[in-house]
Design a protein around this nucleic acid. Structure first.
Lengths: 345, 345
DNA sequence: CTACTTTCCGAAAACGTTTTAGCGACGTGG
DNA sequence: CCACGTCGCTAAAACGTTTTCGGAAAGTAG
């Protein structure tokens, strides 16, 4: 095994293709072809290059590859709330749809601050991301970033207000319908809906789905109307007390969020109602820490955010390949059954 | 205003320095110096280049800059749980300590899967990150990534098991001490500690801090011992029922997490105890959705994770500049006072 | 022996930037 | 008029890849 002992490589820096090539006694071009399984390389040579690369623990410089390929193998993830419950699952779904091998995720948290967003946007574009996923903190439409960014953009969870853009969101109407459908299947007939901030479009969508499904049974909302206020446990408690006054026959509550549902449960228990025997409760979001810790554990609607992230990544990948889409795509929610609902004896 | 109308630039691609230069009628080198505020450029020329760059909306290709500077301006964030409550604040703190202008964050979620971690590690190194922040899902020590990665590494929240590495963590002992100190200042003397999984080092650290502070007052734990089990609301409820049997005089509970604290509150209320008048409750984590929604809102110990992220970023920046550190640095927790504790009338 | 493939390999250009070295022009002091 | 700086600018190298093109060597057919 005679080796020429060419200068191994500069101290402190990772080995380059040149190092591999000279160790294997071939040109850089040949080394490149060998490692990328291109043809026009002899089997023996290929093997020698491989060994050299392994010995040096060579890993190609993605920046250099990006230069010549004119794509960085990177997507930007622009989010409005990093601590929020909603961006994380999306992010996670996106991250593994891309498979980590070909694509990495560059994260930027804009915190709902417009100028910070512009800042981050410039930084991401400067890094020549191949595409952008924008995930909002609220399910409501948000201003478009515009079409002239030079890279494709997909909006997740919060759609863009420009129909020209591509957005993927959870189907809130179907989610509301699904919740009430489940309660009806449990034999409930006196169903109230306690939900959050009336300025959220999602509140109304969920309520609409709920009311539609009720109507199909010839029913209307217990309490007479949707109870809007805020996304808090406190409101869940307060609304429930009101309801118990107005509707002594109440046998189910659809809560617009798991937080509200927790409040509803609390107030029901306090009033001596048994859940789910007397009153069934269903939440929305499937926020694990809330839904599994409650007494009893909470049946809830899961907006399948991770799936949303996956789809967003897929759509973005397509757009990067040139097959751009547009419009808002809605994806179904999923019923997660725990113990706060059950058939009426 | 005579312009030469040189070929504007290749369609579809972002403008390059060459485009700016030819628009301003200077060489690439001059354009570079002008935009980077280097000397050896005339004032008028500099102005012309600036205008051209603005007109073209030029932003320098960070990949190319990275090639020549031998640093990518990117750090890798390797986390074990992306949905988890703990990595997010750290991430956020890190993200803004870096100022987004000079440094971007490349995200990788390993999900506690060793081979996935190796995968992501290779991807990050291939992208030539300038450094790595590793944030764990649990506060306990984790295996070191090793010293020979070629880039500096800082471990946050979960320290490395190799003292040669640099780790920044929350001071759990001081946190436990702080919790009990607050209860004592509220005049409580019969204080129990309900906490989670006994296999977590953090459980024991918090308990140790608590017991130490009690000892300074000549007190011991109500119930006789630390009550370990799991990080769940259900355990909080169960433990509280046990406690009320054993210690009718109980006037305070230090819960090892906010989830447990929620369970404690529930059980106390159910037993007819008034909080905080009869029994004070303090949690740990300051997990907003749990702590603010409870009845009453929960006083708790905030491990200041965002600060941890900031410090981690700072330490990493130092290490990148060549001033590497090592060892485990602990940072204090913060008391967040809400309504579940109050002075004994 | 010539002409022609086929097979394997290397030289060189290209990607977009920063930096080094050098080159004219111009002014200044002798 | 000459030596010498200084100033403003440009040419070219370098960073680490991939790819194109051409060339050498060897084999095959005439």
């Amino acid at each position: 095994m005679s080796v020429d002992e060419v200068a191994p490589h500069r101290r402190g820096r990772p080995p380059t293709l040149k190092d591999v090539a000279s160790m294997a006694g071939v040109s850089i071009a040949t080394a490149s072809k060998a490692l990328n399984n291109r043809q026009h390389v002899g089997a023996a040579t290929r093997q020698r290059v491989q060994s050299a690369a392994d010995a040096l623990n060579f890993s190609p410089n993605a920046l250099a590859q990006g230069m010549v390929a004119q794509r960085s193998g990177t997507v930007g993830l622009l989010t409005s709330d990093l601590v929020g419950r909603f961006s994380m699952p999306v992010l996670r779904g996106a991250e593994d749809a891309f498979g980590s091998e070909k694509m990495s995720v560059l994260l930027a948290d804009a915190r709902d601050d417009h100028i910070r967003q512009q800042h981050h946007l410039r930084a991401l574009l400067s890094r020549r991301v191949d595409g952008l996923i924008v995930v909002g903190a609220q399910p409501d439409p948000r201003p478009s970033l515009g079409q002239d960014l030079g890279v494709p953009v997909v909006y997740a969870y919060a759609p863009s207000d420009d129909p020209q853009d591509m957005s993927v969101v959870a189907d809130d109407v179907a989610g509301g319908r699904l919740a009430v459908d489940h309660l009806i299947r449990c034999g409930r007939r006196t169903i109230a809906h306690v939900t959050g901030d009336p300025t959220y479009g999602a509140s109304h969508d969920r309520a609409r789905g709920a009311v539609e499904r009720l109507a199909e049974e010839g029913l209307t909302l217990a309490g007479g109307e949707v109870m809007y206020d805020s996304w808090s446990e406190a409101w869940g408690r307060g609304a429930t007390r009101l309801l118990l006054d107005r509707e002594p026959a109440l046998d189910a509550v659809f809560a617009g969020s798991d937080q509200i549902a927790r409040g509803v449960l609390d107030a029901l228990l306090e009033a001596g109602k048994r859940v789910p025997e007397e009153v069934a409760v269903i939440g929305f979001d499937n926020w694990e820490v809330l839904a599994t810790g409650s007494r009893p554990p909470l049946t809830t609607i899961d907006p399948a955010l991770e799936n949303l992230g996956r789809v967003a990544a897929l759509r973005l990948a397509s757009a990067i390949e040139g097959r751009a889409g547009h419009g808002v795509e809605s994806y179904p929610c999923r019923l997660v059954t725990r113990s706060s609902t059950a058939p009426l004896h």
